[in-house]
Design a protein around this nucleic acid. Structure first.
Lengths: 241, 241
DNA sequence: CGCTGGTTTGAAGGTCGTCAAGAAGGGTGG
DNA sequence: CCACCCTTCTTGACGACCTTCAAACCAGCG
């Protein structure tokens, strides 16, 4: 595999082996860097969206609001993930995106993107794969909400985030930095903050996971994987056709 | 809009205005017709998949199995929907598909598909939009499971299916044929069959919806829409770029 | 040092699941 | 046309999981 400088090249390098030229094209996409503060809304539901980003640093959450004011987080975005790609392609966004921590983003224009999609068939395929993986994550999330209890959901999310971070060279086997508040976990897992707290307590008491000062520490990885019968298959899409 | 013969042309005709030539290309895709009985598995999780279909008649359900044997239905497929498209593109399927009723399918080969994607940029875009709509449906489903109670979930699904059927010329404003068993509703909505039954009873007692002999009758559409504050936005993706 | 956002805990209640059993519907064969 | 079967639907009682409400605690930060 060719050397990869930016997170985007590293991410897409997981799907196809990038040539040096292709790596350069991707690295050039990341030239226009933007910084946004925690809590700021990057994209709002219903807005016409013409900007597209790759996360360089920090976490974001994409969510939908329900009429009574509560929200359901669809997915978290970590370094290397696309942000707003689908919104741009569909012209109008069907979800909102908020910064969960201070974010560093690489912004690129729609025209630039379209040119690459048309000219670079291999990169186009890799992006399609990346989007498919995002969908697979959402589907797994759906299974979580439908058929797992609070403890299993939480354990599953903790493991998934750890795996995804390690895929882009962040965190390590025994833990990772995690800017999420308990409320974010709750909104992602379809639970209340209070119940998330109790579930964390149980994970702590079972000596599986501890969370403190924005750090997840995985004490017993084996037992944790066992608890949810975790399969990382969905995080590793097959090779392109 | 050009006349459309098959469900596929009718579906994609919603995203782009099809020329007569394009309609013919799509109609030709639907030449190889397959019939499968209710309950048969069309695609199994983990299988390498090389076939791709469009539903001509009948309903299917795509689902994932959880380790304890229960299943979570991800989405239902009705006439005009793709079936196995993503599995083919990813080579190995991450979900299973079962026939909910007797199915009539149009099968087309991967090579045929790839040729069309490469040659017919407009059709390629329309297919991308169709896939995006499928994802939007899954996301809305996720919000259902995370932030709505049993009655709201059921009402939402009933409305959504009605809207989708009407988009392909099936059903009418006051109801539609629905081959789903209560167990299918349960597995889609993350509930038990028994609780689905109770929820249907409540919908019946509130004079909103009645279900009998595989037929959904919508008695008070206004109140039903109000109950879930339904917005059909996600079923109508914006126009292609 | 006090403020603010976030975490933790308790008590009580509601939604939904589990268990168990009966009723209704649809198809098949006598 | 009825008897029989099997699937699906329906109902009741009880209990678990998760929510709601209310309040105390803690950590970081001006």
């Amino acid at each position: 595999m060719a050397y990869a400088t930016g997170p985007l090249a590293r991410k897409l390098g997981r799907y196809i082996t990038l040539s040096t030229a292709e790596t350069h094209i991707l690295d050039r996409l990341e030239s226009d860097v933007v910084i946004v503060e925690r809590q700021s809304e990057l994209i709002s539901e219903g807005e016409e969206e013409r900007r597209c980003y790759v996360v360089l640093d920090g976490w974001a959450a994409c969510y939908k609001q329900v009429p009574d004011g509560r929200r359901q987080i669809i997915n978290f975005m970590i370094p290397g993930d696309f942000l707003g790609l689908r919104s741009v392609l569909l012209q109008v966004s069907d979800h909102s995106v908020v910064a969960v921590s201070k974010l560093r983003l690489a912004r690129f224009s729609v025209t630039e993107l379209r040119r690459i999609l048309a000219e670079q068939a291999r990169i186009c395929a890799a992006i399609f794969w990346a989007l498919s993986r995002d969908e697979a994550i959402i589907v797994e999330h759906l299974v979580d909400l439908g058929r797992r209890n609070a403890l299993e959901r939480l354990a599953h999310l903790i493991i998934e985030l750890g795996e995804r971070l390690r895929q882009v060279g962040l965190g390590h086997e025994h833990g990772y930095h995690c800017p999420l508040r308990q409320e974010d976990f709750a909104d992602a897992l379809g639970l209340t903050t209070i119940h998330i707290n109790r579930s964390f307590r149980e994970l702590r008491e079972r000596q599986l996971v501890t969370l403190s000062r924005r750090n997840v520490r995985i004490n017993d990885r084996e037992k944790l994987l066992q608890l949810v019968e975790f399969s990382d298959h969905y995080l590793h899409p097959g090779t392109p056709l």
